[in-house]
Amino acid sequence: MSSFQLKAFGFGTVLAAIAALSTPTYAMDACATGKTITEGKLTIATGNPAYYPWVHDDTPQSGKGFEAAVGYAVADKMGFAKDDVVWVRTSFDEAIQPGAKNFDFNMQQYSITEERERVVDFSDPYYAAPAAILVRQKTVDAGLKPEMAALKALKWGVAQATTALPVVTQTIQPESDPLFYDDTANAVAAMQADQIDAAIFDLPTALYLSAVVLDDGVVLGQFPAAQSDNPDQFGMLMAEGNPIKECVDAALAELKTDGSLTEIEAEWLQAATNVPLVK
């Protein structure tokens, strides 16, 4: 565990302790009682750092950003006050490594896959992410259209194994082997160095990169859900067999039914109505 996480964890715990002393106990849903790693608290993990637009300014406590907002909404439905939500940080590796977890659930755009389900548990999906193509303006100027035949000739980069790799290797099947990067920043660096023409990201990430990070970035197109037999869906990751799953799923179901999940999505994820579908 990094010192940063220790600090975050410790800080949260202290806050929680103060809150417990000073305010009357929040009316807690019976479902989560005795199922969280700290009684009376809901510990949510995010990335280190957490990226826009999922968490704004790397500060999930603000509730700003899609995943931060969903986290607090779920906590609320589970009967936790805002003050009872504790944020910790993990990498992907820490999230899946065997042994006790330091979070109740972990949100960082984890795609739900069958293989992963064997090792960890996922909540029901809280977002279905279309895959989108990020390119530079000059590639568009050179006449590239979002059509499958044209895409095969590009040099591809991938930074997200679950979201992007199947799209590139199975759907597009490019002529040359794709290059692979640790994170979106490196993929963008490679695009700036002209080592790759295009990269696949989930749509919100692609929109963010084109708007803020890559000066001449353009989201060329998105893939229709029907084109991949397994649309990329994000779920909250939990330790296998964690009894809290049913509570989280119940909370998510409520958020979907009452339309608040859609509202959160509309508030924090940029509308992408102008991104064409790949033909």
């Binding site: 490594q97 896959t113 992963r116 090792v119 082997d177 290059l179 692979f180 990067y181 490679a190 790759i196």
Partner: peptide, 23 residues
């Protein structure tokens, strides 16, 4: 070298780790 793109064995292992959630 995998840091700058080439999918050699360590990167391939990382991809599989991500796909299978397994080390």
């Amino acid at each position: 070298l995998s840091f700058i793109g080439p999918v050699e064995i360590l990167r391939q292992a990382g991809i599989f780790k991500s796909l299978f959630a397994n080390f």
